[in-house]
Design a protein around this nucleic acid. Structure first.
Lengths: 242, 242
DNA sequence: TGGACCAAACTTGTATACTAGCATCCATGT
DNA sequence: ACATGGATGCTAGTATACAAGTTTGGTCCA
């Protein structure tokens, strides 16, 4: 049993951003709010600076403040929301220093995982990654950006599965969440087809067992977003700090 | 203004574990409870399996359930507490798979950071790390284990400062928290003086600019705890799962 | 003595009420 | 006109009350 609710989260004076939450009574309310808010923030549907008033949100989706607060606590931990006691809670700006640090973190971990994956790279696991890549290409062709990003995540995650290091993914995911908004901004530049190409390059290197080249290709792939970021600083000045 | 309170957190039937919280009215209650609980869990003062009843804790330290819940939410995120709805909350057992994954994570990140630190290794930053090491040796000589572990953390963290990657430390810290209990168990084996030696080895390699050897020494240093863990599985069987 | 059942005492999840700090705006006084 | 002070309504932090499910322990009966 589930019901759809619509959440208006527009900041005063800003354009209204609508966030739809489909409630599933079996899952805890707090978890669902967390997922919905996180997705909206990472996808920039809730841009940096927007007010996340506990009262307004809980009124609009018809629950109490308690589960909303639980979700916000976790999002603060994720670095996606900033809370100023007695003043308000806001979608965190994109901190340049945090982007640098978490980009480093993500790259170091993904490259390390890739090294392990290369050691156990078999046609079976290769097929799994390649299938995700093909679905990602299809999503791009259909213009389904949300699915594109979901499959992008699945692709990178597949190396963790291959290396039997699934638990490392949760850490990568946290670092990734802190830099993903930059990727989203960068993806507005029509470079999405290159993502498919670069993913393919990584798989090719793995297929021939060239760990070094695979790592180099992954490095290159991940390094392009920060480079593009520099060019975005002017356009989206409001989103960034430091 | 602050006041000291004592918290009995003994599980039914177990020996009582006392946790003292010194409240500082300027800081938020939830944050202080989080710090206190985290420290007690990581230090094994609150061993795996112990019940963390929200009601009992909030009654004993004289606050409401709300800030206690806030702390628990964050500790769940850290993997240190498990919550079973309508059943109870307990100090999480040490999951072998999680230890493996987070050990991998921590090692990959610390080695990557060390590589960067080596590039900018100057006598000044070397002196900072070496001073921490000396204080750690002093803490060991005095038998102050708590300070020993605090300074151990400071030592590892100093490489992040040196590499201007302070933000990476927060990620390392999370992974570290998930494996630290193993280190604590292993430290009961009288190998603490070796920690000082190994830390010194890393600094020596950095001093001569040998990045590869520094990484190798760090790898060796971090790798010994999991090795010892195998021998502890029998003794502390109750603490582990999977 | 053993088993079944029920009640009471727990657990966490959620809702509501209250507190204290901060911002804004309007009224008042100079 | 301008500055100041205060009422008002916002914020998050904390406290309390209620709901719903689980465990436990004891009692009653066979």
């Amino acid at each position: 049993m589930s019901e759809a609710l619509e959440l208006d989260v527009g900041a005063a004076g800003d354009a209204l951003n609508k966030l739809t939450i489909v409630f599933d009574r079996r899952r805890q309310v707090g978890d669902q709010i967390y997922d919905a808010l996180k997705k909206s923030i990472v996808s920039l549907q809730l841009p940096p600076g927007v007010s996340i008033s506990e009262n307004r949100i809980c009124r609009q989706i018809g629950v109490s403040r308690t589960p909303v607060r639980a979700a916000i606590i976790r999002l603060v931990e994720d670095g996606l929301i900033e809370v100023f006691p007695q003043k308000g809670s806001f979608v965190a700006p994109i901190k340049l220093s945090a982007v640098r640090n978490n980009h480093f973190t993500r790259k170091a971990l993904e490259i390390a995982v890739l090294g392990r994956a290369c050691l156990v790279w078999t046609p079976e696991v290769a097929a799994r990654s390649r299938q995700i890549l093909m679905r990602q290409a299809a999503a791009l062709a259909e213009g389904d950006l949300e699915r594109f990003h979901d499959l992008d995540e699945a692709f990178h995650r597949s190396f963790c599965s291959a290396a039997a290091l699934e638990g490392v993914w949760s850490t990568i995911q946290i670092a990734k969440a802190r830099v993903d908004r930059v990727h989203r901004l960068a993806s507005g530049q029509g470079r999405l087809p290159l993502v498919i190409t670069e993913h393919g390059d990584i798989l090719e290197a793995l297929d021939v067992g060239d760990a070094e080249r695979a790592a180099e290709r992954l490095d290159y792939h991940l390094e392009r977003a920060p480079a593009i970021m520099e060019t975005l600083l002017g356009t989206y000045e409001k989103y960034f700090v430091e």
